[in-house]
């Protein structure tokens, strides 16, 4: 075999590709489901924390800031390992999917709270005062006047951060979740051929390349007026 034939046989082996294609497709859907769970819960929790923070209750805010800092400083894989390998010591066993979900949602919560909060504080004080002077309550002011302005400002950084964290779903393969990477890894060890990894990489590109390009578009579309 020439080097080139060996290369093709390794990375683009048609027989192996056909055999493991269904597994990769299953992994593809699982990755999407995991990503969706993370995005929905992570962003919701982040927004909730930012709103709570707006009430300016000092001990509560210090707690929020600590939690946010914690999940910004810890590597996601460390959090996943803590949940998956550590918690059973407390008699609490969760499956890999749930561990990855909780860990990455917590990370997204931390980053998005920070971004939402920055957006809220960037809305001028005059907006608060104008709304309160017309008799709107605190929550009404927040909901109808401040958040709509704040959210628009946060869209570009939020989009990019969400994309970055969602790519972390590949970490789930480390705790035995058969997502794209998990399925590809399994395929490699069964077939003793790296073609499933090539397919896995291709699957990630199919999934994330449009998302990355979308993120760049959002950045220009919602570009700040300077």
């Amino acid at each position: 075999m020439t080097n080139w034939e060996r290369f093709v046989d390794s990375f683009f082996n048609a027989r192996v590709a056909v055999e493991y294609f269904p597994k990769i497709v299953e992994g593809f859907w699982l990755t999407i489901v995991l990503a969706a769970c993370i995005i929905v819960t992570g962003l919701a929790a982040g927004l909730l924390l930012a709103v709570v923070r707006a009430f300016a209750i000092r001990p509560l805010n210090l707690l929020i800031i600590f939690v946010v800092d914690l999940f910004r400083a810890l590597p996601p894989l460390v959090i996943i390992a803590l949940l998956y390998f550590g918690l059973p010591a407390a008699g609490l066993s969760m499956d890999g999917f749930v561990c990855a979900w909780i860990a990455l949602a917590a990370v997204l919560m931390a980053f998005s709270e920070e971004i939402f909060w920055a957006g809220i504080t960037a809305v001028p004080k005059g907006q608060w005062e104008a709304a309160r002077s017309t008799g709107l309550g605190f929550l009404q002011t927040l909901g109808y006047v401040v958040l709509p302005q704040a959210l628009r400002m946060t869209i570009p950084p939020l989009t990019n951060r969400t994309i970055a964290i969602t790519k972390g779903t590949a970490l789930a393969s480390v705790v035995a979740v058969p997502d794209i990477l998990g399925a590809a890894n399994a395929g490699v060890s069964f077939s003793f051929n790296p073609t499933p990894l090539t397919m896995g990489a291709a699957a990630y590109l199919v999934l994330f390349l449009p998302v990355v390009i979308f993120g760049r578009w959002v950045e220009t579309r919602f570009a700040w007026k300077r």
Binding site: G168, A170, G200, A201, L205
Partner: peptide, 16 residues
């Protein structure tokens, strides 16, 4: 930027 870094790493370490 689209490829998760772990995928890249495993590809290099276990694939190549």
């Amino acid at each position: 930027r689209a490829l998760p870094p772990l995928v890249l790493l495993i590809f290099l370490y276990a694939g190549v």
